[in-house]
Design a binder for these strands. Structure first.
Length: 466
RNA sequence: GGCGUGGUGGCAGAGUGGUCUAAUGCGCGGGAUUGCAAAUCCCGUAUUUCGUCGGUUCGAAUCCGACCCACGCCUCCA
């Protein structure tokens, strides 16, 4: 069974297959590194991560490229405002981004190109477009793509008419373009750019935003590649422009399949600064949530629907992950405690998933994670009720699902408590043996005040950090 | 104004013509267990009900129409 996904271009489900028969070329629009990415950004990246995992686990290798936008209006403006070099500024936020990705268990793309390191490729692309008559330099010194010269414009977002009405509404002539639909390929230097300008055949300046993705995707995946993905808002104009400039340049189909992730909502509304609901991973960690819980909450809805992110949805993650952790341990033992097969091995062996097969199949059908979770827990419930029927495939299947969803599980073994805590716990055990319940409860309160929960066992106790 | 998406139990969220008296999770209620708890386990948890009203059909949460409501996009926002 192949992975199928909703293709924006054809508005239909399409099999995801590598054109070269070997591996799927996969390009994702990455973050602009000028501030901490918020959980909305991460919803998109997590969905893309699951897409990749599902493909790889079903036996199709993926060449994953995700760019870093490290030169644009925002990065330049902010770095200037903070008196830092563009490189130091974006470097800082790139590191932060990587740390968040690691915490959220996102597979690192094999290639993560930065726009500022690919100026030459972008200039070359513009030159070709100039030579072919698809671009022109305007009076303001900037170079623009002539949308009119590309008849297929609007195919992805089906946007022709909308664009016209919007364009006429914008009577303001802040740009010196021939048509308001035309977009910048090269932006002429302005005083506020400071040192962040580059030489080009059209004078000093810097590349337009859309161009970097064309230049870098084609450099690393070829002029025509399998899958391109991003947030829904990028459909227009970003991806439309990417298609126009790339295909006008090469004459070949750019990406063959596109999928877009619908926005995350917070408490029923879009994230915005004024509502104060633009959470970053750090914000949520400060509230006591773990990254794996955030990841769980982010995948709880289908990627083609708005997902309403709430603290309640985050709270639901913890017991679910704990249940899975326990199940994993049980199945591992029931299966004879084999070595847990690592991700890479599972991708090569494409194992039988036992009772978790329906869960994996749900994933292959347009990345239906909510249904996959439903199937996952259904199988879990069966196995919890009939532990004697657990097979090796069941254990492997659970591991496959955990890997496919990228769920890291909390450690089920009790964390070792410091001796002073054990002293209290032993005293309580003693009090209980003497049936001194008042003293026992007092000691339990003391333990609780120090951050430890005590659970009574047959002839002892267990300690757990709260 | 233009375009679009969606309205399913306390919450989240599957299900897109019949096996739906609607998956799954959280939550909640009851029970077992416990000195009391915690943890764990068991059971229950949508008044033929899926925004409202009509229609199509042997049959609809699922198709069609109208209406109401919510949300989103149309600005270099994932």
């Amino acid at each position: 069974m192949n992975l199928r996904i909703h293709d924006t271009l054809t508005d239909s489900l399409q099999d995801v297959l590598p054109a070269d028969g070997k591996r799927v070329g996969f390009y994702c629009c990455g973050p602009t590194v000028y501030a901490a990415a918020h959980i909305g950004n991460f919803r998109t990246f997590v969905v893309q991560d699951i897409f990749r995992r599902a493909l790889e686990l079903s036996g199709t290798p993926v060449k994953h490229v995700r760019n870093l936008t490290n030169v644009d209006d925002k990065t330049i403006r902010e770095s200037q405002a903070q008196g830092q070099s563009l490189q130091a500024f974006t470097g800082y936020w790139t590191e932060k981004f990587h740390a968040d990705c690691e915490a959220l268990n996102l597979l690192r793309p094999q290639i993560e190109p930065g726009a500022v390191e690919h100026i030459a490729e972008q200039i070359a692309l513009i030159q070709t477009l100039m030579d072919k008559g698809h671009a022109y330099q305007a009076g303001d010194g900037s170079v623009y793509f002539r949308v009119e010269s590309f008849p297929a414009y609007g195919r992805l977002s089906r946007v022709q008419e909308r664009e016209l009405t919007t364009a006429t509404a914008q009577s303001d002539d802040e740009y010196d373009r021939d048509s308001l639909s035309d977009f910048a390929l090269w932006k002429a230097a302005k005083p506020e750019d400071g040192p962040n300008v580059w030489e080009s055949p059209w004078g000093k300046g810097r590349p337009g935003w859309h161009l970097e993705c064309s230049a870098m995707s084609m450099k690393y995946l070829g002029p025509s590649f399998d899958v391109h993905s991003g947030g829904i808002d990028l459909t227009f104009p970003h991806h439309e422009n990417e298609i126009a400039q790339s295909e006008a340049c090469t004459g070949e189909t750019f990406a063959r399949l596109w999928f877009h992730v619908v926005h995350l909502m917070v408490d029923g509304h879009k994230m915005s600064k004024s509502l104060g609901n633009m959470y970053t991973l750090e914000d949520l960690r400060a509230k006591g949530y773990r990254p794996e819980e955030v990841r769980y909450a982010l995948i709880a809805g289908h990627y083609r629907k708005h997902l309403n992110f709430t603290m309640a949805s985050l709270d639901a993650a913890r017991p679910n992950l704990q249940r899975l952790a326990k199940l994993e341990k049980q199945l591992h033992q029931a299966a004879g405690t084999p070595k847990r097969p690592p991700y890479g091995v599972l991708c090569k062996t494409r194992p039988d998933c036992g009772r978790f097969s329906p869960a994996f199949e749900a994933l292959l059908e347009n990345l239906n994670v909510p249904r996959a979770l439903g199937e996952l827990f259904k199988a879990a419930g069966e196995l919890e009720k009939a532990p004697q029927s657990v097979t090796a495939e069941d254990y492997t299947g659970l591991v496959v699902m955990l890997e496919a969803l990228g769920l890291r599980l909390p450690e089920v073994e009790a964390v070792t408590a410091p001796e002073e805590i054990h002293v209290l716990a032993r005293a309580r055990l003693e009090a209980r043996k003497n049936k001194d319940w008042a003293r026992s409860d007092e000691l339990r309160d003391q333990l609780s005040a120090r951050g430890w929960a005590v659970k009574d066992a047959k002839d002892g106790y267990e300690l757990e950090p709260v």
